[in-house]
């Protein structure tokens, strides 16, 4: 029997925390993304040719949403479990009749929800700047949800691993932006020399951005099915890592 009340308690508790920090957690990504649209979409974008038959501003929209979604989900997932570790309130989680699976559902669920909310807000913001078409709305949502859950889970793992705030911010600040910028958010990898186009295939974010963009305009750098499979692989990797952590009690139970 699952401890449903505990999952609800963790989820609502985390969502309430989000509510308290609404300004910094929602407004700031919206402003940042709006700036991207003004600079790249409108100012510079008007001088750039269409990419794959799509205006440049519209072309970069899925990548920008992904950039925010990834960093938000990783940060939220990490801080959610890191904070109780840091303040010591984790004693309560560990002495409660909750299993690790329930703890993950609560924290990762809340982090993914928050990430999705911000992603959708940015999508709405984008629609003010560029003409958006979404060919496969359901698949688009599926890409977003799967990505949000997977990367919130990665965030959770980082939160368990991290010993200080510096380590906590390492991945969302130093790893996600370069991978996203080089993962075809702002260009099609067809534009790259063949060698670098091949190297780009090692970048996991390429598959996320490409599949996500396909759900908008039906154009992609890699086959959308491959994108979906890769997200599945990332999700499985996250789950396996978590399973290992829980089995060994790594960094949680002495």
């Amino acid at each position: 029997m699952m401890n449903i009340e505990a999952i609800k308690a963790i989820y609502y508790f985390e969502m309430a925390r989000t509510g308290r920090t609404l300004l910094q957690s929602v407004i700031s990504p919206v402003i940042t993304t709006s700036l991207y649209f003004i600079v790249f979409g409108t100012a510079i974008g008007s001088r750039i040719n269409e990419v794959g038959g799509v205006s440049y501003g519209a072309f970069i929209t899925p990548g920008l949403i992904m950039l925010t979604l990834l960093s938000q989900c990783i940060s939220n997932g990490a801080i959610g479990i890191y904070f109780p570790k840091f303040t010591g309130t984790i004693y309560e989680l560990l002495s409660s009749p909750v299993s690790m699976v329930e703890i993950v559902i609560g924290y990762v669920g809340a982090a993914a929800t928050k990430g999705l909310m911000i992603g959708l807000i940015i999508l709405a913001t984008a629609s003010f700047f560029v003409d958006l078409t979404i060919e496969h709305p359901l698949l688009m949502l599926m890409f977003m949800v799967l990505t949000a859950v997977t990367f919130s889970m990665f965030g959770f793992i980082i939160g368990i691993w991290a010993d200080n705030f510096e380590q906590l911010n390492l991945v969302p600040m130093l790893v996600v932006p370069p991978l996203t910028f080089l993962g075809g958010s702002f260009y099609s990898i067809d534009m790259l020399p063949p060698f670098w186009a091949a190297v780009s295939h090692l970048n996991p974010v390429l598959y996320l951005v490409s599949g996500f963009r396909w759900s908008f305009y039906g154009i992609s750098d890699v086959n959308p099915l491959v994108s979906l499979v890769m997200i599945g692989v990332f999700l499985a990797a996250g789950m396996l890592t978590l399973g290992r952590i829980f089995k060994t009690g790594y960094r949680l139970r002495k």
Binding site: N3, E5, A6, P97
Partner: peptide
């Protein structure tokens, strides 16, 4: 209230 929920109580 959170503590009560964690312990599976309504």
């Amino acid at each position: 209230s959170f503590s009560r929920g964690l312990h599976g109580e309504k």
